[in-house]
Design a protein around this nucleic acid. Structure first.
Lengths: 196, 196
DNA sequence: AAATTGACTGTCAATACTGATAGTCAATTT
DNA sequence: AAATTGACTATCAGTATTGACAGTCAATTT
């Protein structure tokens, strides 16, 4: 009884605002005031919903990992029918709005905060491992005759090339940088083709 | 006349301490107190040597870019005699202490601060472009008959794979992650070989 | 309508951080 | 030895940030 709780929804909104602030100001630079302004709420409410600073950062970690995992799962499902390396690369590099670019930046920001918040390490590590695994599975399904180790290497390489591209976004680099990673990923994929 | 100035030397020491703090706490988390403790100095001295916060961050930017450029130049000179792609990859991935791992992390942290300190963008962009250029020149010299565009893509790819590896260091990932990037770089290099 | 529950606000205290200034001490020149 | 210059220290004021708590308002149940 009593007033119905919107805690779950509101908490997600606040975490989303937190994410935007981390992208702009970094983990330590994202103050309660910034987050509140971004979320359109008063400062004390942030604390009300997320707790003190440490709890906030850990909650952000969970949120980022959760969102990241959902994107990973979406990718897996999308390529389940036609698990082709080219489709994987297209999905990664030409996903129009499918993947939230903030996730990658936040992920890196949180990785760099591990020394202060060691609890972040495990979930961050595991979610990235899951991402790699999906890519590996797609490459393996795509090239059943190829060497397994080669497939793993190619999958890792494609993902890593994708990650770097995102990391440079705030630098507003020339488009060629992005294209190069994309074409390098394609070249990497080609190494798995049969050589007659 | 007067007491001899150690400003230049001390400034570099302070900037080095700043760099270490940025690796640990991020750009906004690296407080004057942290930096002073790291440098073994009193807090007001940091200001004395580097000026206010904005000047400090810009000075750090210059310092990181300068160090990065020196490493780039070292790489270029080291591979000038035998400009081979494999040597490039070895130099990048198996450089024992040659490359300061803090540079990469600081570089990324500064990239993420561009929105707050827009002056950082140009030097950061240019120094990375110089890094790419050295790699491209080595690949071109190594494969004079190969398609030029292909060489550029491969060079970009190798560098990007290297960068990702460094970015994950705070996550303490399994060694396989590093190996995968290394082998992916090798595979990418192989795509330039002549196909009979 | 009363009670209950939770979202939300206002406000204060404690602390952390930066900016700034006056002043001390050390090394060099004349 | 006096003067000069710069490294370094002590300390204060102003602001930003967090933490905490009391209290108001809204929505739902009984």
């Amino acid at each position: 009884m009593g007033r119905p709780s919107v805690q779950d929804q509101r908490k997600k909104e606040v975490l989303d605002a937190f994410m935007s602030c981390v992208v702009r100001y970094g983990v330590e630079g994202a103050t309660l005031e910034h987050i509140a302004a971004q979320a359109g709420l008063k400062r004390p409410l942030i604390r009300h919903h997320l707790g003190n600073r440490k709890a906030m950062v850990l909650a952000l970690g969970e949120h980022v990992v959760e969102t990241f995992s959902k994107q990973t799962e979406t990718l897996r499902v999308a390529l389940d029918e036609h698990p082709d390396v080219r489709n994987l690369i297209e999905a990664l590099f030409n996903s129009d709005g499918e993947m939230d670019p903030r996730i990658n930046i936040c992920y890196q920001a949180l990785v760099n905060s591990i020394e202060i918040y060691p609890e972040l390490r495990k979930p961050l590590l595991e979610s990235m491992e899951a991402f790699y695994k999906v890519a590996i599975d797609i490459v393996l399904a795509s090239h059943p005759k190829a060497d397994k180790q080669a497939c793993e290497i190619v999958a890792h390489g494609i993902i890593n090339l994708f990650i770097t591209t995102d990391a440079f976004v705030p630098l507003k680099p020339p488009k060629t940088w992005g294209y190069s990673s994309y074409f390098a990923a394609l070249k990497l994929a080609e190494t798995l083709e049969e050589k007659p």
